[in-house]
Amino acid sequence: MYAKVFTSLWDGSLYGQLEASAVLMACVTLCNADGVLDMTHEAIAGRTGWPLEFIRKGIEQLEKADPRSRTPDEDGRRFVRLDEHRDWGWLIVNYGKYRELKDVDAVREQNRRRVRAFRQRKNGVTVGNADVTDVTRGNAPSRHTDTDTDTEANKKKTSLSKRKKPSAPFPPDLTLDDAMRQRVFKQFPDADTEAMFEQFRDHHLAHAKTSANWSASWGTWIANAGKFGYPKKPGGDLGWR
């Protein structure tokens, strides 16, 4: 298991707390995909090779409420115990938040690689006059005419123009604009457009969906909302269709 550690760890309210910051870095690699760290103090000490008292002090600091924390959940606590009857086993409170940031970075990197590969493929195709070589029909030498060459070049151009636009992952910088909001309002005036877009984004990121036209995909999502339901604005019927 590995985890991305953000430099902001040393710039916030854990600044100067060696045990807490070190233990937090270790535990984000030891927990599961949901941020659950179901291990004893002794097990963590054994896995890291750090003194048991060092581990205990770090976890004690991470369990404390911190009003200065960037994440206000659980009163700023970084660790919350899974069960009240035992002194070990925790949920890392903001693990999911930073895991999502990691996923967005991964998608952004995939986008860069996909665009780079597409450009390389595009630049590698040469459309123009093909090499013309002598051919022999019987004993009489002859050449392809310029018309023949132009025809072949035109065929290549036509073939390239018919190629489909490659699919790409969900763009991390895609946000709601007025045109996208208007498309929702025309069909579902009572819809919570922000919440609908969040569902659209989260679904495609979670399932690693790709699309050659994300504007068209948004239109399809809206069209299906009448069948599968959509979030409504507060103040009206708060249920789902």
Rank of each mutant, 00 (worst) to 15 (best):
G76W: 07
W10F: 11
F170C: 03
A212Q: 03
R47V: 10
E152H: 06
D73P: 00
E152I: 13
T40W: 04
A26R: 08
L37E: 00
V80R: 05
S159N: 02
V36T: 09
A43W: 05
E198A: 15
S161R: 11
W218T: 00
V80N: 03
R108C: 14
N154E: 14
T126L: 14
W221M: 08
P166R: 02
H207I: 02
R183I: 00
R47Y: 03
V184F: 00
E60T: 07
P171A: 02
N139K: 13
P189A: 09
P171W: 01
K155S: 04
A206Y: 11
M25N: 11
V28H: 01
K232T: 08
Q199W: 07
K233R: 13
L205P: 00
E84K: 10
F54Q: 05
I92F: 01
R81E: 02
G138C: 13
T71R: 04
W50Q: 07
A130M: 09
E53D: 08
Y2R: 15
G236Q: 10
Q17L: 12
D178H: 01
V5F: 02
D75P: 01
G124M: 09
L174K: 00
R86N: 08
N94Y: 08
G226L: 04
Y230L: 05
L238W: 14
H85F: 03
S167F: 00
K157R: 15
K186E: 13
N129M: 03
R183M: 01
R121Y: 01
I222C: 01
D148K: 04
D202W: 07
N154S: 11
T151F: 10
A179G: 03
H144V: 10
I92K: 00
K164R: 10
T48P: 04
E194Q: 07
N123C: 07
R78P: 00
Y95C: 06
I44V: 14
V125Y: 02
L82R: 12
A26N: 11
G46R: 13
V125F: 04
T220W: 01
T220K: 03
R201F: 03
P51K: 04
S142F: 09
Q110H: 08
A140S: 07
M25S: 13
A179W: 00
R121I: 01
T7V: 10
F6E: 14
R119L: 11
T71F: 13
F188M: 09
Y95V: 06
L174M: 14
H203V: 07
A208M: 12
F54W: 12
R47F: 09
D11W: 04
G235P: 03
V132L: 05
L91D: 02
F185M: 06
F54C: 03
T29C: 11
L205V: 14
Y15G: 15
E100T: 12
M1S: 13
H204E: 00
H207W: 07
E63F: 10
